[in-house]
């Protein structure tokens, strides 16, 4: 209280100081700048994700046990909207998913978009509710009992998905091993792209108009948006292309072949991982809008601050 009182007094005594106005303006601008810096999402996300920790890729054929577990998961988390057979129908809010295919299920669940509380709104990417094992079980059940066999299944197991998470392992050694294995797989896939240049052309011709040149996403009509794809794993990008989640069009394996998809994914991932040769601040790779904003708020403000220093009134005592 007294401290506050003193502060107020201190301010009151100085509020008519000739420099008071400048101080207020400078403070306001600083606040603005810091505010922006806080709001602006961190740039390191993409890299952090790549290095993040985690689970093994179970490649064995699913057992009946897995299918049973999957059924339980389905009934617990999915059936309330999609119905007991995945056909939804009368009284259910969700769509019929029998024709969507396992790739779509994997995409929706592994990106945390499903299960969703609000079937009408576009879901943002979230940490997945189910862990890898549960997702595998769910897919086993879906393939065995719900899905239409003609719909796109989960693509080749060479395509890396989420890196293993530490929490899914009991001992550290197994985790390390799984992580290493995953990293090798990731590298094989990205480095193995035969023609990343074609990947660039395909990306610019078919993807950049929604997801932007940097993969930062963009606005769509009706309040929807094309999501940022920095966090998406190669597997998720692949699945998104073949299933066309939400309003995204489908790019079947015949239109863009698996090899070309690999090129495209390699291009995006390489671009996102590339350090910014122009300096550490990449302005979130938004480019022109952010550049103009910085030119005004940082550049011009600093220069004007210098002008104020140069021309400030000079008293004998300063």
């Amino acid at each position: 209280m007294t401290r506050n009182g003193e502060t107020v007094k201190w301010i009151t005594a100085r509020r008519r100081h000739p420099l008071a106005g400048y101080v207020v303006v400078t403070l306001a601008l600083t606040l603005f700048g810091v505010g922006y810096a806080v709001i602006a999402p961190g740039a390191e996300r993409a890299e952090a994700q790549t290095l993040a920790a985690e689970a093994a890729a179970a490649e064995e054929q699913p057992t009946a046990e897995d299918v049973a577990e999957g059924r339980e998961i389905y009934n617990k988390t999915c059936a309330s909207c999609h119905g007991p057979n995945g056909e939804a129908g009368e009284g259910y809010t969700g769509p019929d998913i029998t024709g969507e295919g396992a790739a779509a299920v994997d995409f929706q669940v592994s990106t945390g978009r499903m299960p969703s509380m609000n079937p009408d709104a576009q879901m943002p990417r979230k940490p997945p509710v189910l862990n890898q094992e549960e997702i595998d079980d769910l897919l086993a059940y879906y393939n065995a009992e719900l899905g239409d066999p003609g719909a796109p299944g989960v693509p080749s197991s060479d395509i890396p998905g989420e890196p293993p998470k530490r929490a899914d392992f009991e001992d550290h050694g197994a985790y390390e091993e799984a992580l290493e294995e995953w990293e090798a797989k990731y590298e094989d896939y990205i480095e193995g792209a035969k023609n990343p240049n074609a990947g660039m052309e395909l990306y610019l011709a078919n993807c950049a108009h929604c997801h932007s040149w940097s993969g930062q996403g963009g606005a769509l009509t009706g309040g929807r948006w094309a999501p940022e794809i920095g966090d998406a794993t190669p597997l998720q990008i692949y699945e998104a292309m073949i299933t066309g989640p939400g309003t995204m069009p489908e790019f079947s394996d015949k239109v863009i072949t698996p090899d070309e998809k690999q090129d495209l994914i390699a291009y995006v991932k390489d671009l996102q991982a590339e350090p910014n040769a122009g300096g550490i601040f990449d302005l979130n790779r938004v480019a022109q809008v952010a550049e103009g904003f910085i030119a005004w708020t940082v550049g011009l403000t600093l220069i004007v601050a210098c002008a104020i220093w140069i021309t400030a009134k000079q008293r004998t005592h300063d």
Partner: peptide, 22 residues
Amino acid sequence: VEGAARHGEEGWIHEDDLTPGG
């Protein structure tokens, strides 16, 4: 397909290549 480096007839788009929503 624009940008795809396929050669000759291999690159032609077939009517079955596109799926609805594609």
